[in-house]
Simulated assay, not measured.
Amino acid sequence: MGRLPRWRSCGRVRLLGAAVSAVEPGPLAAWHISSFSPDVGPNCVEAGPSLDGSGRIAVRHSRHPDGPVIIYTRAEWDAFLAGVRADEFDF
Rank of each mutant, 00 (worst) to 15 (best):
M1G: 06
M1L: 08
G2V: 11
R3H: 11
R3P: 01
R3A: 13
R6K: 11
W7V: 12
R8M: 06
R8I: 06
S9P: 04
S9Y: 12
C10M: 14
G11M: 11
R12K: 08
R12E: 08
V13S: 04
L15D: 12
L16P: 00
L16F: 09
L16K: 12
A18D: 06
A19D: 13
V20A: 09
V23F: 12
E24R: 15
P25R: 15
P25T: 10
P25N: 14
P25H: 14
G26M: 13
P27S: 15
L28R: 15
L28W: 03
L28T: 15
A29E: 09
A30M: 07
A30L: 11
H32K: 05
S34Q: 00
S35F: 02
F36K: 05
S37K: 05
S37H: 07
P38C: 05
P38Y: 06
D39S: 07
G41C: 03
G41F: 01
P42Y: 03
P42G: 06
N43R: 12
C44H: 10
E46G: 04
A47V: 09
A47F: 09
A47S: 05
P49Q: 02
P49Y: 07
S50R: 07
S50Y: 01
L51S: 10
L51A: 07
D52N: 12
D52S: 09
G53M: 06
G55I: 11
G55K: 05
R56S: 11
I57W: 06
A58E: 10
V59A: 05
V59Q: 00
V59G: 02
S62M: 02
S62G: 05
R63H: 13
H64L: 08
H64D: 09
P65F: 12
P65L: 08
G67N: 02
V69F: 06
V69I: 14
I70G: 07
I70W: 13
I71G: 00
I71L: 15
Y72G: 04
T73H: 08
R74P: 07
A75K: 15
E76K: 09
E76V: 03
E76D: 13
W77V: 06
W77N: 09
W77C: 10
D78P: 10
A79I: 05
A79G: 12
F80P: 02
F80M: 14
F80Y: 14
F80G: 04
L81I: 12
A82H: 02
G83W: 05
G83S: 10
V84W: 05
V84C: 04
V84N: 01
R85V: 02
R85G: 00
A86F: 00
E88W: 03
E88L: 09
E88Y: 01
E88C: 01
E88R: 13
D90L: 03
D90G: 03
F91W: 05
